[in-house]
Design a protein around this nucleic acid. Structure first.
Lengths: 187, 187
DNA sequence: TTGTAAATAGGACATACGTCCAACTATCCT
DNA sequence: AGGATAGTTGGACGTATGTCCTATTTACAA
């Protein structure tokens, strides 16, 4: 019903934040229901297993990414500016990245160890960004190289996020972001 | 005594492999003692807490890295060739990286969420590499930039490892390694 | 106002975990 | 050989986890 859907979304949002901040393995059913002020039994009414809630979180994130990209497509028509918008998004998230790393990368890193089924779903989040990036590179004239360039930009962001959160060094973060911006400018 | 030290090292090696393949959180005392064919009680005789064994693993890895770097210093005298040796090491590990990611990066990513105390120890593994890389860049004539360049090389390796293990795509891996090699060549 | 479905509550359950211990055996020194 | 030390065992312990169930309350339709 109506109310159920609202609660469902609230649960997903809370689980999303906890998975990001504590990691999937370190977040328990009780953690989530406690954070919601909700009984475990009621939580179970909405999500039967931990994988269910993880999949819901991943699905929600993928959709959110898709919506962001649609917005960017509307706001910017030039592919170069769109690429810069992607990098600017990273900059805007620098504080949380320094604390918890990249929300996509850290969960993929966790799931890539043994939890193969959901890794495929999680890597979908990368794919949404990647295909969009690839399209921008293609429009910049890079036909055969577009795919590898999209992976490279993704990859650099991941490396920067990991080093930044490990060293807790935002100076490095900003330095690298500037370098990438310059790289895009000269493409 | 003698025997104890041998067993101790065997335990550390086994825990090392399991932490790498399954992650720290997903590896239990029982997992390790089972893999060793040893009773939990005996394991406890050597390591009292999970943090103890983690620290021992990190310490062992750091030492191993230091020894590798010493070897490279002896084998190669030119800084450019030394940098290439670092990248060649990544190439040699591409199969395990595709499966489990970077051993250093994946544990730092895991520990950076909430487990602050041991993260400092874990990031020491990065530091060993980083300081050595910085020295090579410095010898190449990059004085002020040496630090940032060392972080960049570290960072790119991390991004590549994560994307490679997520997508299980060794073609991308090799492409990026080649690109980095060319970058080093033209420094 | 009922009857039906949705939503909530609290706790049962089996299992797994990290930690710890008391007792036993092997090893070594004198 | 005897005694001290090192090494080993299996299981106890309290707690936490994921899953599940039954009972109760709320909300809406007839």
């Amino acid at each position: 019903m109506q109310k159920g859907e609202v609660i469902r979304k609230k649960i997903i949002d809370t689980a999303d934040a906890l998975f990001y901040q504590q990691g999937f393995a370190h977040t328990s059913f009780t953690d989530i229901s406690d954070a919601l002020g909700m009984s475990k039994g009621n939580f179970y009414y909405y999500f039967k297993t931990k994988d269910d809630i993880l999949n819901a979180v991943i699905k929600k994130r993928s959709e959110a990414i898709r919506l962001d990209l649609e917005q960017w497509d509307k706001l910017e028509s030039e592919p170069r500016k769109r690429l810069k918008k992607y990098v600017a998004m990273l900059t805007a998230s620098q504080d949380v990245i320094a604390k918890y790393g990249c929300p996509v990368g850290s969960i993929c890193s966790e799931l890539s160890k043994l939890h193969h089924e959901n890794l495929n779903n999680a890597s979908e989040m990368f794919e949404v960004y990647r295909q969009w990036l690839e399209e921008q590179f293609r429009q910049l004239g890079y036909k055969k190289e577009a795919r590898i360039l999209s992976l490279r930009l993704l990859s650099r962001g991941q490396g920067i996020a990991l080093i930044t959160s490990t060293y807790n060094d935002k100076v490095f973060f900003q330095h690298e972001i500037a370098e990438i911006m310059a790289w895009i400018e000269n493409l």
